[in-house]
Amino acid sequence: MPDINPLIIFLASIATSNMVLSNFLGMCSYLSVSSEYKTASGLGMAVTLVLVLTSALNWAVYTYLIVPLDLVYLQYVIFIIVIAALVQVLEMAMDRYTPDLHAKLGIFLPLITVNCAILGATLFMVIRSYGFVQSVLYGLGSGLGWWLAISMLAAMREKLAKAKLPPGMSGPAISFIITGIMAMAFIGFSGIFTIQ
């Protein structure tokens, strides 16, 4: 377990090493669900929730199941099954106990299983051998960072819908250019967080 303050991991995963803007993870849904601010924000919230839960769960699975049983070579399969199962359970639980939330987030849940950001966070956390608290805060930070990025993109795309763009530029092309500019701005954050 690296001797890094979990709070710094949390802040860095939002700003300096944002899931989308510097790790390129979760791009598929980032691009396809960002034409409307409200929907995008809903998806962001769902991703954050799932990220926190899977980070915690996969950390436990890795530490208490995969390592003791020497199954490291099967880890990808195990992680993805844990994620898929968790998303399924979460959907059923939401449907039953919080129908309001389910109405809001339910449609996004199936999309999340194949969101690379979720598996990505798990793999990064394992490869960097984070402890439990570090993992959970990393998951939370990554989720918030993803949420922030997709909300910003969606907000800008709403305005852009009315703009006159060169032919072929509207849609994914302009989204990438905007994302590039956002990524450049986020580079400005690097150096804020000092490691003791």
């Binding site: 690296p2 860095a12 300096t16 090493s17 990064f124 490869i127 960097r128």
Partner: peptide
């Protein structure tokens, strides 16, 4: 060994 930005 020591802490880098992301891990050891």
């Amino acid at each position: 060994t020591g802490a880098g930005l992301w891990g050891s």
